[in-house]
């Protein structure tokens, strides 16, 4: 099964993403913040990382940078979820090595469409 790591400090967003993906047949691992996610990523391989940007402990941008530094995650698709529709966060995410972004608010359909852009 294709495993997706969903990182968000908001439980409702995490649940929404997680349920949507499970519903579509993906496996989902949830993480509450960057640190949490990094620990998951170190212990198992995932096919895609979806991360919020603004989180306590470790933000999404830092997470992307840290993940890219792991040998196993050099080419793994990483999407940052951002409410900021502006260029700033996207660029920061990209500069850190993210594959792309998804602008919040999004609905389940958008989420899946975007995910299908990076994994089959």
């Amino acid at each position: 099964m294709t495993n997706v790591l969903a990182v968000d400090d908001s439980a409702s967003m995490r649940q929404m993403v997680s349920e949507t993906l499970k519903h579509a047949g993906y496996g989902v691992i949830e993480a509450r913040d960057g640190c949490d996610a990094l620990n998951v990523a170190r212990s198992q391989r995932v096919s895609l990382v979806l991360t919020d940007v603004n989180m306590p402990n470790m933000d999404g941008i830092t997470l992307v940078r840290e993940l890219r530094a792991l040998p196993d995650y050099r080419f793994t698709p990483i999407l940052v979820l951002t409410t900021e529709s502006g260029a700033e966060k996207k660029q920061q995410g990209k500069a850190a090595g993210a594959t792309g972004w998804l602008v919040k608010p999004f609905n389940p359909d958008t989420l899946l469409a975007t995910i299908r852009r990076v994994i089959g």
């Binding site: 400090d9 908001s10 409702s12 967003m13 929404m16 603004n54 306590p56 409410t83 919040k104 608010p105 999004f106 609905n107």
Partner: peptide, 14 residues
């Protein structure tokens, strides 16, 4: 900020 931000994100989604 984070509080307002995450409420905004969630409320927009829902």
């Amino acid at each position: 900020f984070r509080g307002a931000h995450s409420i905004k994100g969630g409320s927009a989604t829902f």
